[in-house]
Design a protein around this nucleic acid. Sequence first.
DNA 1: CTCCACAAGCACAGATCTGTGCTTGTGGTG
DNA 2: CACCACAAGCACAGATCTGTGCTTGTGGAG
Lengths: 190, 190
Amino acid sequence: MTQQQASARLRRSPEQVRAAVHQAAVELLCDPDGEELNIPAIAARAGVNHTSVYRRWGTLDALLADMVTTRLERDSPLKDTGSLRGDLLAWAEASVASIRTPEGRALVRAVILSMPNNTRAQAERRQQFERRMRSIEKIRERATARGEDPPPLEQILDQLIAPFYIRAVFGIDPPADGYPELLVDRLLHA
Amino acid sequence: MTQQQASARLRRSPEQVRAAVHQAAVELLCDPDGEELNIPAIAARAGVNHTSVYRRWGTLDALLADMVTTRLERDSPLKDTGSLRGDLLAWAEASVASIRTPEGRALVRAVILSMPNNTRAQAERRQQFERRMRSIEKIRERATARGEDPPPLEQILDQLIAPFYIRAVFGIDPPADGYPELLVDRLLHA
DNA sequence: CTCCACAAGCACAGATCTGTGCTTGTGGTG
DNA sequence: CACCACAAGCACAGATCTGTGCTTGTGGAG
């Protein structure tokens, strides 16, 4: 009796489990009819035992944070276009494309959901945010090295990043045409 | 035996319960060391039986949505300053003051947290957002009536509202001086 | 090839959340 | 003043989440 379950166990490698869980979490975030987001639901959808999730990540927040970090780093390979305007435009176009997809919006939502209120998370929130800003900082540094004079980070935050976030959070579609150019031009001509 | 508990029951009116629960929810959202946000925790902090909360609101999302709506309407009495710039500036100054307080940031966070992913909530999300936008629409309408030419709502969203939200969500303090003026001037001189 | 460290899966249990039926106090109405 | 509708509180229970101890398959080192 008990030996049979042993043979029936189908097992995947840690990396497969990790990918399956991340994928399941994104899908649950996207799926409008999906059940609510918690560890048992994610594990079930991933076809993974829930204990594996509890042991590896501990909490839903940690799981989401890990998932977000992994996906963002995988999906945002910033390229050097040779000019500040080009770099910003590439970034903005990638962002617009991203928040047009359910998965992209879900990712932004997850960034916020994965930031609980407790004390330790407060620091992680800042860290998470700065990690997000790093690609923009890189763009600024390259511009400075070229002799260009990029706007301060704070201004880029207000005029370029903030619009994307608010639209992702509230599900507001960006204007159909020329939106990235509009934002970048506004930023650079201020 | 059973009669004693009856006499020991201290009871508050529905309105008192409502206020106490709202207050408890805000405090839990603010308190960095607070336990996590759920109905039993809120009820306990409010000194209310949890069944009262379940019966009145049903879900945490509904409770937060109700709380946010009530607080926002209570705290944002927009006044007519006589000019578009004045109105926008008053709105921006109130918003900056708000997100400088833990409670203000908590309220913005609650707006987002109270928007779950299921299908019905998708519509409510839009509604919730438009309710938020109504005060801005009012400002635009008054300006139009005065013969002024206010920027489109979308531009106000991107340049004025979005910066506040992103700062509230990530806990980024706005610049110390002249921030409301900066944003409004940028918006109007674009 | 053999052995070993690691992690995934299983079984089980305590804690917590969610919900129901009933009792009873409160405020309003005649 | 008496009565009634409503909602708050209590007791209790099912469902679900969270976590632990153990077994066992997998992949890598020697």
